Amino acid sequence: MIRIAIVEDDHHCQEQLINFLHRFKEERDETISIHTYADGDEILENYHAQYDIVLMDIQMKFMDGMSAAEEIRKRDSQVVIIFITNLSQYAIKGYAVDALDYILKPISYFQFSQRLIRAIERMKKREVQFMTVRMKGGVRRFQVSDIYYIESFGHQLIFYTKDGEFSTSGTMKELEKKLADFHFFRGNKGYLINLAHVEGMNDHCAIVKGKDLLISRPRRKMFMEALAVYWGEVIK
């Protein structure tokens, strides 16, 4: 079951999205539940991380979609957000709330279906995954999405996570291979960065939780390409 919320104050656009979802459901043989809201404040009223995907209009009468998305992110780090808009300049702002993509109005079914396929792929990848790491005195179990980045320091690997810093012995090469399917990318010889926690770029550094992590010159182009793919592109 894929749980989808539509937040759209334009009745015609809301009906179009519902019809597109029904068509997608039949073509892909997916089980989808659909819930609709006419404004950002409506979805927030009883929001408790109950949706897999949110299709969010940006310009609405009472609470705009960007503000609603910011509040949703405070309660739900996993939901996939796709903005529906006729203004492409909102693309940069969307990175702050980890929006998967933008669909520009008027919407075509092909554009919509391609973005929905991508959203479902991300949703499935974001299912909770854990890794267990041996540490001095025992072991520690991490939720992969809670790891911000990993630093190699001599023969030690330092994990910077939601719950603090932890170190273990090992090689970055082995760890990079283990985390390759979870949007981790090598910034340089010393850093393995979770793209989900990259807040932006500053000169030659990735900003992760307010810290500048240097991206080496040989890896810069590949890192930016990987980050662009993760962040998504504006549909034109």
Results as ranks from 00 to 15, higher is better:
E151Q: 14
E151N: 06
S152V: 13
S152F: 02
S152L: 11
S152W: 02
S152I: 09
S152K: 14
F153T: 11
G154R: 13
G154I: 10
G154K: 14
H155G: 15
H155C: 12
Q156C: 10
Q156N: 14
L157E: 02
I158D: 03
I158Y: 06
I158T: 11
T161E: 11
T161A: 11
T161I: 08
K162T: 12
K162D: 14
K162C: 07
D163S: 14
D163Y: 07
G164D: 07
G164W: 07
G164L: 08
F166H: 13
T168S: 15
T168D: 04
G170D: 10
G170I: 10
T171D: 09
M172L: 15
M172I: 11
E174F: 03
E174K: 12
E174D: 15
L175S: 01
E176N: 07
E176F: 03
E176A: 14
K177G: 06
K178C: 11
K178P: 02
L179R: 08
L179F: 07
A180L: 09
A180I: 10
D181K: 13
D181A: 15
D181M: 07
D181H: 11
H183E: 12
F185R: 05
F185E: 12
F185H: 13
R186D: 01
R186I: 03
R186C: 01
G187K: 00
N188V: 00
N188K: 00
N188D: 07
K189A: 07
G190L: 01
G190K: 03
Y191G: 00
Y191M: 06
Y191F: 15
L192Q: 02
L192H: 04
I193S: 01
I193A: 04
I193R: 02
N194V: 10
L195F: 09
L195S: 08
H197D: 11
V198M: 08
E199V: 08
E199L: 06
G200K: 07
M201D: 05
M201Y: 08
N202E: 15
N202H: 15
D203E: 13
D203W: 05
H204L: 05
H204I: 02
C205V: 00
C205E: 01
A206H: 00
I207H: 03
V208R: 04
K209W: 07
K211F: 06
D212I: 01
L213S: 00
L213P: 00
L214A: 05
L214C: 00
L214Y: 05
I215H: 01
I215L: 03
I215K: 00
I215V: 13
I215C: 00
S216Y: 02
S216E: 04
S216D: 01
R217V: 12
R217K: 14
R217D: 06
P218V: 02
P218K: 05
R219V: 01
R219M: 05
R219S: 04
